[in-house]
């Protein structure tokens, strides 16, 4: 069984935002209203001369126990066998319960107005119905044997993508070593995006 996960090394993320651009073009996200499937937060930590600038990429955590899927009343949010949490635009009625259920702020609304703007912005648009959308690990690329667009474009190799169930995969080794850890594990969502901390370097 395959279980896709992403590991993000905060030590090597340089904040170039190439992942955001690659994702936006690949998945035609409504960037005109500053909405992204993945977003790199830029924070200064510390005071005086002892300041650390942290670039923190966030995205859907493809939880094993996804609250966005539980609250979805139509079954529009569903999970594949490989763990990728997907959205079926045809089933989504846009109640936005999933956006409230997600503790990682990974869901965004794509409205009919966005579809109109998107047609002019991107030319041809893959979407023809509104939905409360999110990252899907570029499932269409993964199915074709490629990596997600954000991983492929990352100049610092901060984003790594792999199979948690493959013991020989470096991703699974990073997770099992405990160096890469998930966000908000106390909520019981069992997230499958892991981070390597940048503030614990000696």
């Amino acid at each position: 069984m395959t279980r896709y996960v992403m590991v993000i090394d905060l030590n090597t993320c340089v904040g170039c935002n190439a992942c955001m651009a690659a994702c936006a073009i690949e998945n035609q996200t409504p960037v005109w209203k500053s909405v992204w499937r993945t977003y790199v937060h830029d924070t200064e930590i510390g005071t005086g001369e002892d300041v650390h600038r942290r670039f923190f990429p966030s995205l859907c955590n493809h939880c094993a126990n996804p609250p966005c899927m539980t609250v979805c009343p139509t079954g529009a949010t569903y999970q594949r066998e490989d763990g990728i949490v997907m959205v079926d635009d045809a089933l989504c009625m846009g109640c936005q319960a999933c956006a409230l259920a997600c503790p990682y702020r990974a869901r965004y609304s794509a409205t009919y107005e966005d579809i109109e703007i998107g047609r002019r912005f991107y030319g041809a648009l893959m979407r023809d119905r509104p939905s409360v959308d999110k990252c899907n690990f570029c499932a269409h690329r993964v199915d074709a044997g490629q990596e997600p667009a954000c991983v492929e474009t990352c100049v610092g190799s901060a984003r790594m993508f792999g199979d948690l169930d493959d013991p020989n995969d470096r991703i699974s080794q990073l997770v099992k070593s405990g160096i890469a850890r998930p966000l908000l594990p106390h909520l019981g969502t069992r997230p499958h995006v892991y981070y390597i901390d940048d503030l614990k370097r000696s």
Binding site: P73, T74, L91, M93, G94, C95, A97, T111, R129, P130
Partner: peptide, 22 residues
């Protein structure tokens, strides 16, 4: 709602068999 037509899915009583957790 963002898509009013899709509300038909939740109006169907069989939705309780497909999404009993929602």
């Amino acid at each position: 709602l963002l898509d009013h037509m899709a509300a038909i899915h939740v109006m169907n009583p069989l939705v309780l068999f497909e999404k009993p957790d929602a």
